[in-house]
Amino acid sequence: MQRLKAFPKAKLTAVLETMSQKATVWVPSMIAGVSRFAPYRPEIDIQMGTNTAISPKEALFPSTEKIYTFSAYGIDGEFEPVDPSVGLQILFGLRSCDMQGILCLDDVFLTRGYVDDFYGSKREATTLITLGCVTPGADCFCASMGVNPVEHDGSDAQMYDLGDAYGIIARTDKGETLVKDLMATGLLSDTDKSQGPTSDFVLKVDSEGITEKLQQMFDHPLWDELSRKCLNCGTCAYLCPTCHCFDISEKKRNQHCGVKIKCWDTCMFSEYALMAGGHNPRPSKKERVRQRFMHKLRYFPERYGKLQCTGCGRCIAKCPVNLEITDVIKLAGEAKKDG
């Protein structure tokens, strides 16, 4: 068995400095009062204690991205694609919930016959380093969604919280390269310590059989009740590590040229499903709220075999009206099939 290598938490910046020689390292940090993953730089305020308020999907799927520029003078027109690739990057300190989120995004953007190069090029350039959780956050419930807080085998390297040090093992070739680089600096040493047990979750829900249950609940009156307090803002979707809807719009510089932009969108917005001609198949909050939870707990599992909620708890933490997915799962689970 691979002996665990570790570095003291006090040497974290040295480790990040080393990694930064070869790649942009996204670390959990405090930026302008909000915790999010941001590219490492020497004065950055690193926050390793709890998961970030904003999910790391922005490193692979930015909220606003140029896709091509266009120009037309007279009859001639030109399109020039914008190169979506980024330099090498490392996502450092991903929790299992976010790693699972990235696997969901992989399913959407890389499988089923079409590879989205905007996501794919960034994904390929990224080394993922997960970190085990010892203390679940107040809103965390990954274990209830089938995600293991201790570790995640989908990453390139796994770190463990050993109290005063971080242990690290490589899982893939990318991970091996990274660990080798760190070994070369002398920052790593062998350790016999192991990650302590993950303490108990505050938030728990039984999500067993939720997909099958929801398959019989499309017309259930539960959706009327649940949707009443929703504001139809984009907070839950934009914070979610698995939500991936986007819109294409444009910015014109003048009547001749401009740029097409891909930006985050959400089924929560009233105009999301609005069609040319004015028909909206999701005209009220009820349809939209139902859509959100159906997608996460039924349609996505039906298509990709995994739940589209990884239990990170961010939506629960920030929803202005505390519409909690854990409540939805519980109520749907308990509901009588025909209401």
Binding site: S63, L231, N232, C233, G234, T235, W264, P320
Partner: peptide
């Protein structure tokens, strides 16, 4: 990131 929570509430 223009979630419009402020506007909607």
């Amino acid at each position: 990131f223009r979630c419009y929570a402020c506007r909607n509430i």
